[in-house]
Design a binder for these strands. Structure first.
Lengths: 218, 218
DNA sequence: CCGCATCCGGGGCGATACTG
DNA sequence: CAGTATCGCCCCGGATGCGG
């Protein structure tokens, strides 16, 4: 990208990550960890393949990521964030926090979706209201291949990609329906009548839902 | 800007502020408060005037800022962040934090500079090591018209635009020289020999400088 | 199949000129 | 003071090709 030519910390940061698609490439690497070119492409619906290649080159040159040759027998290239690249998590978190309200309107007609993108709204809205109890995990299922699990443990909420788990609860349905239930905006029973599927212990769900309404009532 | 078409909090945020120059316009409004078109233009060296007008229109439509007619006798238009726009401070802070290391190299030959941009690196690097004492302010002077003052009070560092002050100390010189001294990388005496000007109590300076080196020596 | 490079049309961007 | 108008140009988007 053309530099702003300003001796300013914000402008210098944008000189590196201000290009179109660049921040979203970092998003994929933060959520997925070291990734192959093809997997990045799959997590970035709409990107032109030449742009992805060019951005990866620029980010490598800027010291944000490194290329790694995976050992045989896979023998593929992995793109991996450097320590400096990992520090961009603060920028992505701030953007995700500011952008989460836009999720409340539901997806636009043409919007594409990948399940792991829910990590940000989920961490924004949920709380662990019973930190002293044993950790619990809730699996989210929207029909996508790359799933995430919400983990409540010790007062903190984490969302991470799901490998092979035995969750305490499962929420299956559209992303909007899942977010509506998690945020407490729609009661679970109503959502289930509208097609959401829930398995497991309802108390696990209540543990992580925001308590603003309950607190206001008390 | 063309939407990414992704149902993702980060992508939705970038749909609003991902365009070129947009974040820097928000930077000016955060630092200056409600501003006139001409003042914004002055704080954004390099921007084309049509782009500034178009971005302001888009940000107004997105609910990030509002246009206000200042009362007579000034009778000029003021651009002012909404509450939603003010919430972008977290995004700008994260970008400033990540971009501050780039300031250590000094300005590029063609870099333009405005004094109030130093607010981010200053708040990143300084600490108030004597929170129990009375507040102090240090004025920075780089020859620019819009100056800032560093304020240390109650353990916190704030940088704000300077109206009319009686600072406890004044640092005058190039931005790079000032940052070098504030960060503790260059001793004050050396910098003064190289052209920096300092007025006031040196203990005021020591109060805000980072103590990493002193702590390591102890 | 993976990781690109090339080509081409369109639109956003940059610079300057001009105006109510 | 606060913009609009105009015009190249380069970046971006979409498609296709291609070597390892």
């Amino acid at each position: 990208m053309r530099s702003y030519g300003q001796y300013c910390a914000v402008a210098k940061a944008l000189d590196v990550i201000g290009d179109r698609w660049t921040v979203l490439i970092v998003r994929e690497l933060l959520l997925r960890g070291p990734s192959r070119y093809t997997d990045l492409r799959d997590g970035l619906p709409g990107i032109a393949t030449n742009l992805l290649a060019e951005r990866l080159r620029a980010l490598e040159q800027a010291g944000v990521l490194v290329r790694e040759d995976a050992p045989p027998p896979v023998a593929t290239t992995l793109f991996k964030l450097t320590a400096r690249g990992e520090q961009l998590r603060g920028v992505l978190d701030a953007l995700g926090r500011w952008g989460t309200p836009f999720m409340a309107e539901g997806p636009a007609p043409e919007d594409r979706f990948r399940q792991h993108w829910m990590a940000w709204p989920v961490q924004m809205v949920l709380v662990d209201s019973r930190p002293q109890e044993a950790p619990v995990t809730i699996e989210l299922a929207t029909g996508e291949e790359l799933r995430i699990a919400i983990e409540a443990a010790g007062g903190e909420i984490h969302a991470r990609v799901l490998r092979s788990e035995h969750p305490d609860a499962v929420l299956a349905g559209t992303p909007y329906a899942i977010l509506s239930v998690l945020s407490g905006g729609v009661p679970l029973a109503d959502a289930c009548e509208a097609g959401l599927r829930f398995e497991g212990d309802e108390r696990v769900l209540a543990r992580v839902q925001p308590q603003a309404i309950a607190a206001a009532a008390a």
